[in-house]
Computed example of a mutant assay.
Amino acid sequence: MKILITGGKSATALKLVKAFDAYQAVLADYGEVPSFISKAYSLISLGAKNEDTLAHTLLNKCLDEGIDLLLPIHHFEIEAVAKAKTLFNEFNIQILLPNREELDHYFNIENICKSDDWAIFKDGEIVFTSNNDAISNDTNQKNLNGAFYLIKDDKTKFKLVTI
């Protein structure tokens, strides 16, 4: 299986790659990117950033690259990709984002949170966690999808990993 993670030139994307060692990882970013292929991932360009066609650009790149799973992490992609989730599903491309109606609970563009602890959920199952003590394995997040920072205060909150 192949996963495409956006924000490919960022340290955050490189950190997320380690959660998908069973996948063929493709990191992608806008503009020029160095031509690079490693054992862990390849790096490709998404072309010039055009916020009016983000979902279309990502869908085309996923189809060109044979992608099965998409993890968008640029904050400006989240809304557009969440709205196009049905379109991606029609091409058998799963998007690692919460459902559109739940998105506001996990993502606020004015208040982007960061944490050292993070986890990745796919269909409600924990795929990876950076700190096993930060989240219990019996955490039931229904059909939650995405990469989340684990924000600890009086209880654990999940906030989408974005750059």
Rank of each mutant, 00 (worst) to 15 (best):
G66M: 03
S45P: 10
Y106R: 15
I5P: 02
N131T: 08
L97W: 14
K39S: 12
V81C: 07
K9A: 04
L54I: 13
S115P: 00
E32H: 13
S35I: 11
K2E: 06
V127N: 00
K114N: 13
Q24H: 10
S130I: 02
I3N: 03
K61E: 10
E125H: 08
K85L: 06
I112E: 13
I5K: 00
S45I: 13
T139H: 06
I135Q: 03
N132Y: 02
E102R: 13
A48S: 10
K18T: 02
N145C: 05
T53A: 14
T129S: 02
E90D: 14
I37H: 08
I37R: 09
S38E: 11
E51D: 10
S136N: 10
K142G: 01
L43G: 14
E110N: 12
D153K: 08
A80W: 01
I126E: 03
D133R: 09
E90G: 13
P72V: 07
D21Q: 08
I44C: 11
T12R: 00
A28P: 14
D138T: 12
K9M: 05
G146M: 09
I126V: 01
H75Q: 02
I93Q: 11
D153N: 07
N99D: 15
I73K: 05
K2G: 06
K152N: 08
P98Y: 06
N99F: 15
V81D: 04
G8H: 05
K18G: 03
A134L: 01
I135F: 07
K122N: 10
K157E: 12
Y41S: 09
Y41H: 08
L87C: 14
A22Y: 07
Y149F: 14
A84T: 11
A84E: 10
I37N: 08
K157R: 14
D138L: 13
V33Y: 11
K49F: 15
T6Y: 01
R100T: 08
L103A: 06
D29T: 04
T129D: 02
N108L: 12
N131C: 07
Q94W: 00
Y23S: 00
K15W: 01
H75L: 03
L87V: 15
T53E: 12
D104A: 15
H75S: 00
K155V: 10
G8C: 00
D21L: 09
K9N: 04
C113Y: 12
F107W: 08
N145S: 04
S45R: 13
K85G: 07
N60A: 08
I3D: 01
Y23Q: 00
D138Q: 15
I3G: 02
T12L: 03
F36H: 14
A11P: 05
L14D: 07
S10C: 00
A11Q: 04
I109R: 15
A84R: 09
W118P: 01
D154Y: 11
N132S: 07
